[in-house]
Amino acid sequence: MFHFINRFTVTGDPAEFERILGEINAYMSAQPGFRRHRLYRSAKDPQIYVETAEWDSAELHRMAIGGDAFQAGVKKVRAHATAEPAPFTVVRENSVAAP
């Protein structure tokens, strides 16, 4: 499993930023190996967003971000936010057991 986390600081219109990320997510979710995407907005600072994505592998993620649709979306996002993207590895995971 490959985990990707991206922190955004929105400098433009938050609604437009969210709309563009929605377009990117629609593209990414149709790519092989995509598992899950979540977008969080800080309750403390509404200009800060964090997105997390899970993929079957780093290679499948790399292939997806190489697509023209993804690159066009990233260009649009840059007009509204700065990004701090990075791959992560899970160190510890905890969940509630099903009854």
Rank of each mutant, 00 (worst) to 15 (best):
T52V: 03
R62S: 05
Y27G: 07
I24T: 01
A86K: 08
R41K: 02
V50P: 06
H61W: 01
A53N: 13
E84S: 13
F88Y: 14
Q31F: 05
H80W: 07
G33Q: 01
A58C: 13
W55L: 00
H37W: 12
E54P: 13
N94H: 14
T52E: 10
G66R: 05
A53C: 11
V74T: 01
R41I: 08
T89I: 11
P32G: 01
R78Q: 02
T52N: 12
R92H: 11
Y49V: 04
L39S: 04
A81K: 02
E93T: 14
M28P: 04
H37I: 10
P32M: 02
V50H: 06
V50Y: 14
G73C: 01
E59I: 09
Y40K: 02
R35H: 10
F88I: 09
Q71N: 06
A64L: 10
L39D: 02
Y27W: 06
I48N: 01
M28W: 02
Y27H: 13
G33N: 02
V91K: 10
F34C: 01
L60R: 06
A72Q: 15
F70K: 00
Q31Y: 01
P46K: 10
Y27I: 10
V77Y: 07
R38M: 12
A53T: 15
K76F: 14
A58D: 13
